[in-house]
Design a binder for these strands. Sequence first.
DNA 1: ATGATATTGGAATTATATGCCAAAAAAATC
DNA 2: GATTTTTTTGGCATATAATTCCAATATCAT
Lengths: 169, 169
Amino acid sequence: MPKESPPAVGVTLDRYDRQILDILQRHGRINNQELAERIGLSPSPCLRRVRALEDNGLITGYRALVDAKRLGHSLTALLHISMDRHTPERFANFEAKVAALPQVQECLLITGQEADYQLKVVVHDMDDYQNLLLNQITRIEGVTGAHSSFVLRRVLEHRPVPSYSDTPH
Amino acid sequence: MPKESPPAVGVTLDRYDRQILDILQRHGRINNQELAERIGLSPSPCLRRVRALEDNGLITGYRALVDAKRLGHSLTALLHISMDRHTPERFANFEAKVAALPQVQECLLITGQEADYQLKVVVHDMDDYQNLLLNQITRIEGVTGAHSSFVLRRVLEHRPVPSYSDTPH
DNA sequence: ATGATATTGGAATTATATGCCAAAAAAATC
DNA sequence: GATTTTTTTGGCATATAATTCCAATATCAT
């Protein structure tokens, strides 16, 4: 089993790195010259730092955000799933099945609810949702319950993880 | 009040556009030359299409993804919030207060649960979480209840919205 | 088929990224 | 506190990529 990401110890970020992370989390496709200008460094050290953050695994990737509604996915739902048994096999199988469904945007293993997983799914309409739920998800081995919430409005989404010591402790 | 995004009608995407959306959702910082190569177009029309998708609002932005744990945010929680009254004022105030909290990654107005909102928050540890919950969130006017779930593992995250007709209807 | 409209590909130009190295800054040592 | 060592920066040269323009091609409607 792969080791989890190393402890945060050893990652020392200065003001420049934090600024880079903050800006790239908001403007992932900004070019290096402008990024350098914004943080107050010349382009070469700025690029070196970005590469280092990528190589360190602090930056794990880049994504374009798309308007799901415009793409025809009018309905977003949160699905809370309960499993019968909490064995690694059950979980691994469920996760593999769910990963094969393109409608699933997110899958989190959670505690604190009566559920084991929370899925976030996007579909065209309620018919598609019903189909996904009844014909795909509830048929996965071990699934004993599913509770649906629908997203009425996205108030905040894709907000940057604080890279400054916003949260002193 | 601002009008919601126009109906999906009128957005006609061909094979190239769909490929662009799919690739950029996975590799948001890919350069135009490689993108062009992958979709089988020369760079100039490819770039034109990307710009068009951005201008149309189909692509709403770009984000770098960061490893929250590496940044010291070891704990991710889902918070279900109930409100006393469902008035626009209550909601607007809650949303503004929540938007001011950098730990809040996401805020969704939902139905189907006993809750009105689901928040996704990242914090350093349980002490920070307690502080956020008790001193910030539950003190917002109108909040009558909060139920916490903790994210044990991120199985899937930031998956692309289907741009192909994966989901025929 | 034919004309009108939209889209492409390639060349020229402009802008940006990248590698290199001397200079400056920061950190460690005495 | 001065000096050496280590790290980081800034600027230049070069390579790579973005952008614009337009003739050529493809698509669409009639």
